[in-house]
Amino acid sequence: MTNKKKGNAFTNNPIVRAIGVQKIVVVVVLILLLVFFSVKSTSFWSYASLLSIMDYTYYLAFLGIGVTFCLITGGVDLSIGTGMFCYALAGGFLITKMDLPVIVGILVTLAMGIVVGLANGLIVSKGGHAPFLATLCTMMIVRGLGAIITGGSSITWPIAGTPEGWTRNLFKFTLPSGTKVPLGFLWVLLAAIIMSLFLNKTRPGRYIIAIGSNKEATRLSGINVAKYQTLAYLICGFFTGLAALAYSSAFQSMTPGGGGGVELNAIGGAIIGGTSMSGGSGTIAGTILGVFIMSILQTGLPKVGLQANYQQIIIGVVLLVAVYIDVLKNKKLS
């Protein structure tokens, strides 16, 4: 009996299938972008510039990994942007203003992420709220919370060189010779590998995909949908906490109330990388690639003379295009 093959020669090629069509397209786009920027800007390929790209990528990658889990269940988490700032502000506040040990600050940052993630998950799975609305509300709440905790003042995590500033070295290690090594890349890679394994090779990961694919069928198979849906948001919250650590280690001061807009970069990156808003599909690798495109845009555009405002317009348009392609993909499936 013959399988009615859908698609064409390219999409049916086994190697292409194994990697994923979208990822290949993304890599091509990535290469084109890199070529474009290196041609248009002489300073793009400088080591300092690459380090800068890395700084943007770390936190965005963690956010991307986290929100991918929500997207796969067919939901979304809009609180990751302001959340990242809030948790970093809280942790940093404890370290710099309350003179608590750095490790406490780190733990609090992560803990806050987990708690808010859990709250999001419960509101969505038990409360029945639409994910975008629920996480929109928590986005507002953590935005206010962050500012209240710090009393409105900006926070800077301890800088490199000071004894408390060791978190910075975690992400950018300065060798004795003076060169800085983008160590953070290792953590991102590690996280990506671990979460990819989690998603594809463990039961919770499998059930999260199943929920996004067909919630009712998953429920009928006897799986506790609420539990695994909540787990997805919890993971997202945890990674927002990690992103907070990455951000505070890479950048200087953080103003309360900031972070709005960052979530769209992360979500956009995930969608570009092949994660569908309708749920059921998505890979960690794809998200990392998509997020990479976003951070390259963010660092490259200024180098060709386009400031932040142009970036916003371009990223907005990129997001629209990515969503449209996603909508078309889904139309074709049904």
């Binding site: 932040a308 405002n309 907005g316 997001l319 629209l320 449209y324």
Partner: peptide, 25 residues
């Protein structure tokens, strides 16, 4: 047929950027 929440968020970004571009930040 784009979902309204993400569409309006994207146009929000465009609005932010456009406003800034027109007034030269």
């Amino acid at each position: 047929g784009l979902p309204s929440f993400i569409t309006s968020m994207a146009s929000m970004m465009i609005a932010k950027g456009l406003g800034s571009v027109c007034t030269k930040t």
